[in-house]
Design a binder for these strands. Structure first.
Lengths: 204, 204, 204, 204
DNA sequence: TCCTAAGCGAGACGGTACGTCTTGTCTTCCA
DNA sequence: TGGAAGACAAGACGTACCGTCTCGCTTAGGA
């Protein structure tokens, strides 16, 4: 068992430095322009060793991002529910704060430098999160509009707003961003949920 | 002049078949998995000939998309202005119709298969379009919120909604989509434009 | 015939400048490193025009060298015969003088820069010339040794001597070279021609 | 050390098969018409692997020929010295025997198919060898004629004679060739070495 | 003197080979 | 035994020439 622990330690260390190397390189240049050699070199690891742990570059990224996004979602989810239930004026401040604290990472992802894979994983995570939140909001009755569409709408406008924020060097506070976005998204969701049946029938 | 046209004819034809080949291949598989050889073969053109016209795969795509997006924007811009000025209930129906008619192309772009370059060009085009439209809307006075942020919000929510629509095989009509999106975005924009100064001061 | 003349003037000019361009380039760098483009550019002629006249680079060279070597051989042949018949002490002075006057050309050929094709054409020309001369010398009776072998021996030693001369910047006079070479080759040929039958029988 | 040897084994094997493949192909067609692909295919080796070991085709040939010529020269040199010192009637038989045993290779080189590079390396090797031998012969006093010129003369006539021999399918024995060539070259060298000063003064 | 067939330039095109790069597999050694 | 080192096959990359071709311009010579 001690032996296994020892082995594991090295293995985990190797994986960690590989991922760290990838992140480091992704800060500097486009994901597509990074090679397995680059990563191995940057991590001071043999190239063959890379293949002992990951199938390819995407595998390394996905394995780690998956965990990272899941972890963030897990962290944010209860806060979001709690904020909404507690009637906190700005539940989404939680998200903007998360972005604020890891600005370079999100900048890289949202600017497209990280390739579309990462972007889509983040996008999907946000959609799932909001689908769940919205579902909870309309618990009383059915929404006349598909929840998936609402979640897409919310996620798209949120990420897009964040992108604007980051592109402008976060000159605004995260509170400001949360307030504005909240201000804009609330009437949309509320308005939709309260649409009377006539509108729905006329437009479907 | 006739002479020039004749020369151009071959060149233009070659470029056209190359782009057509790329689009054809992109319908079948991921953009990243397509090689220059594939394109040349599919277009029945020598691989060297490809390089006579384009620096690489991205160049071919960008050169053509650029023109395509510009052309679409040019076509939609006046319609959008006109619709808004004329108080047409659903000005954005124009956009959903465009998507409806070229569904496979937009599906490919929005699903991320086309790589981040294409995605970003489309994204930026929509942002520019909306920035202009919103600017026109608030011509009376200054917006308390940055126009760029509003444009990002609109573009993000629009593309995201379109993505949901396409992912669900366009089961809804384009009229429905336009109506829903319009219903959601209008109060956001209007609400923001009409925010009183107090809110702004408190949140800035 | 008049018709042919029309065509010829421009054609001949083009062929001349092409060959001149090739020679000019061959002075500067290795024959193998010269491209058809180079030749056409240097001759201020379209590349396609080159192919109207010659199949390829070798064709251009061969067509012209052939004529050149034949012409030189024709010029030297009678002089050589005459010199030998007249008992002139140094008939080969004619050859060294020819080399002296076109030193850069022969330097290029013999140093191997001209590629093996040119080298071999020159080599063969010299062999043919000497085969004829030696044949004339032993007109009385059969040579115990194959005339071809003698011609090869003579040609090889001659060209090799010339190469040494050129490599040493022709510090010696052509008279000196002719005298030395004559001094060396004469006993060889004479000795062989006069070998008695015993030697031949013992060695064959 | 054992470790290094093991690693080397694969490398050496690869280089060997590459050279063997080149020789095999050179027997069949002109050196210039052989591509790196051909060599790699013939050696059952990836084309990229070729470039791991050699810069290009010429590098492969040169690397191996260099060693080969040096090795042959080393082998022949002492025999030649010994033969001359011991008054052996035909010291050059050694060379003709070498050629006899590797006839196809020398045929290829001397016919010019191997390109001028190979030809010149062989030529220079022979010149160097004879320069050394002649230097040893005239150890007593100075030669009135430059040793380099004598060496060129000898090398040129020797290779030329060999070429005749090979072109005629080696119908004569190597003994015959050695005897004839010896018969021809001896009086040349001897005659020159014994020239009295008058001749030299008159001709210089 | 005008017309007309040629020679010619320009350059697109399909090919082929180049030398480089990256990938993923494998083998050998070392710690 | 896990990891470093690196040989190797495979195959895409972008470049360079090749030889063929089509297109108009020009121009020399016979009408």
């Amino acid at each position: 068992m001690a032996a296994i622990k020892k082995m594991d330690r090295r293995v985990l260390r190797t994986r960690k430095v590989l991922y760290a190397a990838l992140l480091e390189l992704m800060m500097k240049r486009d994901y597509n322009d990074i090679t397995v050699s680059d990563i191995a070199d940057c991590a001071d690891v043999g190239r063959a060793t890379f293949y002992l742990h990951y199938k390819d570059k995407d595998d390394l990224l996905a394995s780690n991002l998956e965990g990272m996004f899941v972890e963030i979602a897990e962290r944010i989810r209860p806060l979001l529910h709690q904020a909404i239930m507690g009637g906190q004026p700005l539940p989404s401040i939680i998200i903007f704060n998360e972005v604020d604290q890891n600005a370079p990472l999100y900048q890289m992802i949202l600017s497209g430098q990280g390739g579309s894979v990462v972007w889509h994983r983040l996008y999907q995570t946000v959609i799932d999160l909001y689908e769940e939140v919205i579902q909870a909001l309309i618990v009383g009755g059915d929404s006349p509009i598909e929840v998936g569409l609402l979640a897409h709408y919310a996620a798209g406008s949120l990420l897009s707003s964040i992108k604007w924020w980051l592109d402008n060097d976060r000159e605004r506070s995260s509170e400001y961003m949360a307030a504005v976005w909240q201000q804009m998204i609330r009437p949309s969701i509320m308005g939709i949920v309260m649409l009377d049946e006539d509108w729905y029938v006329n437009n479907k």
